[in-house]
């Protein structure tokens, strides 16, 4: 008698592959985004089945929630630029200029190489080895936190996490540089029911995001998951037009973007200055330092993701018919 969950797992795996194929082959951009979001949700479920709730939370919040919102916003912008905004039939936008075959081939080759590299890494890894479980469990008392994933991310492999925060910072810098010349698509008016929903959901999201950050020390959760959920606050504020970005707010936004990276790097430098290796936190302050870094990184992640959703740096002069009245 096999475990009945094996059947569920097989169906889940099949559904994920089928959704990936469907998302790539469908010609309607909106359907493509919807399929991608469902693909992300099922991937999160797969991570739960693999006993990785931290990854599942990150996949659901960042890979599905925030990315889905970014893709929909991009579609809205594309339809504004192509002049098909507000036409129901024009949801499927075919590219105005066809993608050159060379670009397609280069993309395919690149993705193929990555897949090949992953396959080699997977086949080369010891099949049923002990992994790092024992090592991590042994070192946990030195980490300052109780949850192994947080211990690995913020202490043992803190350098990797710092680089992830830097990547996010680089992304928002690039967006603010590139989108300077583009005109904004007007935000859709969404009505009173949506406004009411925003008022109801906003405080709840703040609580959930902060809870995810706080609980990360002892259970699944942490800066990236909490930050992504808190970014939803920014999205709600932007979509309900309760907050309209002003040029004067750029300084605060820039400060929030670099806050996490700066605090992270500063702690590493100060620790290193005390005659230790960078990120070798003194044990008695480890929990405080980790919480400080996580808290500030969460603020940065939330503000950065919300800014990426807004897209463009708020500028003072109207360059392309922007009406922010």
């Amino acid at each position: 008698m096999t475990d009945p969950l094996v059947i569920f797992d097989l169906l889940l795996a099949l559904a994920i592959v089928a959704l990936a194929v469907a998302a790539l082959s469908v010609r309607d951009l909106f359907a493509m985004i919807v399929l991608f979001v469902i693909f992300g949700l099922l991937s999160a479920l797969a991570w739960v089945r693999l006993s990785a709730p931290d990854v599942a939370l990150a996949e659901a919040a960042i890979g599905t929630g925030v990315t889905g919102a970014l893709l929909l916003k991009t579609l809205h912008h594309l339809r504004f630029v192509s002049g098909t905004l507000g036409q129901q039939a024009a949801l499927g936008v075919t590219p105005v200029t066809p993608v050159p075959v060379g670009v397609t081939l280069a993309n395919a080759a690149f993705c193929g190489l990555i897949t090949l590299g992953l396959a080699v890494a997977f086949l080369g890894a010891p099949a049923a080895g002990p992994g790092f479980d024992a090592l991590v469990a042994e070192a946990m008392p030195l980490s300052g936190v109780d949850h192994p994933v947080t211990g690995v991310l913020l202490n043992f492999r803190a350098y990797d996490t710092l680089m992830e925060v830097v990547v996010l910072l680089a992304a928002v810098i690039a967006v603010w540089q590139i989108e300077r010349g583009l005109s904004d698509a007007p935000a859709p008016a969404m009505g009173e029911v949506w406004q009411g929903f925003g008022r109801l959901a906003l405080p709840a999201i703040v609580v959930v995001g902060t809870y995810l950050l706080w609980v990360g020390a002892e259970a699944p959760g942490g800066a990236f998951q909490g930050g992504a959920v808190l970014a939803a606050v920014g999205l709600l504020l932007l979509l309900t037009r309760a907050y309209v970005p002003q040029p004067g707010h750029r300084g605060i936004a820039r400060g929030a973007f670099v806050l996490g990276t700066a605090a992270f790097a500063l702690v590493a430098l100060l620790v290193a200055g005390g005659g230790r290796v960078a990120f070798e936190y003194p044990l008695e302050h480890a929990k405080t330092l980790i919480l400080l870094i996580e808290g500030l990184v969460t603020i940065s992640i939330a503000v950065t993701l919300a800014a990426l959703f807004h897209g463009r740096e708020p500028v003072a002069l109207t360059k392309g018919g922007r009406d922010d009245a």
């Binding site: 009505g191 949506w194 109801l200 959901a201």
Partner: peptide, 26 residues
């Protein structure tokens, strides 16, 4: 109970938004 409440409110709002959008674009 919290999950039920917020999913219920969110899906009701989504249904309303979709219907509203369909009406407007029609």
């Amino acid at each position: 109970a919290l999950v039920w409440f917020f999913v219920a409110v969110a899906s009701a709002t989504c249904g309303h938004l979709i219907a509203r959008y369909a009406r407007q674009s029609a």
